[in-house]
């Protein structure tokens, strides 16, 4: 009860006020996007449960490497939320630093994923090799495309911040971009658990 009261008292701008049109628009997009991922995850689970020959994921996939990649994405989520926090206080230098760190985290995630794909494809796993391959590459590839578009989105914002835009004066561009980035992180948490670990 006391913890709830403490969290409630933290100074978050616009707390419990009506969200801006831009924020509602992003949330509506995220809901539709989440439905796409939901369909893909349910499709993966259905095919896995109906298939008589499904490999144990840990025997095919590199779990420690992907755990490291998950950590990279979690770190980029923290840097994103710190960028949002800095933007609200008008701290342009910190926004540039944290937004840059978030873009770097996204690029690092994509590089590790490209290495993983290269390793798996060299080992004979592809979109057409098996049901596992088809669902694995579709799901992780769709997510990877989101990370790539997020990197592009945040890089554009970073250029804007460097040009003197998007910081302070109630501007919510960075907060809205943060929603997209955290969504990408949230979806990866589920993919890592249900595709790599289960």
């Amino acid at each position: 009860m006391q913890a709830e009261a403490t969290i409630d008292s933290l100074p978050v701008p616009h707390a419990h006020s009506e969200p801006s049109a831009g924020k509602v628009g992003m949330w509506i997009f995220l809901v539709t996007d989440a439905l796409s991922f939901g369909g893909l995850l349910i499709g993966y689970a259905s095919l896995r449960s109906w298939s008589p020959t499904w490999p144990v994921p840990s025997s095919v996939l590199d779990i420690p490497l992907t755990a490291l990649n998950t950590f990279v994405l979690i770190c980029s989520s923290v840097s994103m939320v710190l960028a949002v926090s800095a933007a609200e206080t008008g701290d342009r230098k910190s926004v540039i630093r944290w937004l840059g760190a978030t873009v770097a985290g996204g690029l690092c995630f994509l590089s590790i994923q490209a290495y993983e794909y290269h390793h798996l494809i060299s080992g004979g796993l592809s979109l057409s090799s098996s049901l596992f391959g088809a669902t694995f590459f579709t799901l992780t590839g769709f997510h990877g495309a989101h990370v790539a578009s997020g990197v592009l989105y945040l890089s554009t914002l970073l250029c804007g911040v460097l040009a003197g835009k998007f910081v302070g004066h109630g501007d919510s561009h960075i907060e809205i971009a943060g929603l997209f980035w955290h969504f990408v992180d949230l979806i990866w948490i589920l993919i890592f658990t249900f595709v790599y670990l289960v």
Binding site: I7, D8, L10, V12, H14, A15, H16, S17, E18, P19, V24, W27, I28, L30, V31, A34, L35, G38, G39, L41, I42, S77, V78, M80, V81, E175, G178, L179, H182, F183, D185, L186
Partner: peptide, 23 residues
Amino acid sequence: FYMHLWWEKAWLGAVALSPFAFT
């Protein structure tokens, strides 16, 4: 906490949860 749903209006939280229900 990162997407600030804790501090948002309840209706926005319901919108955010709706994909889980549909899935």
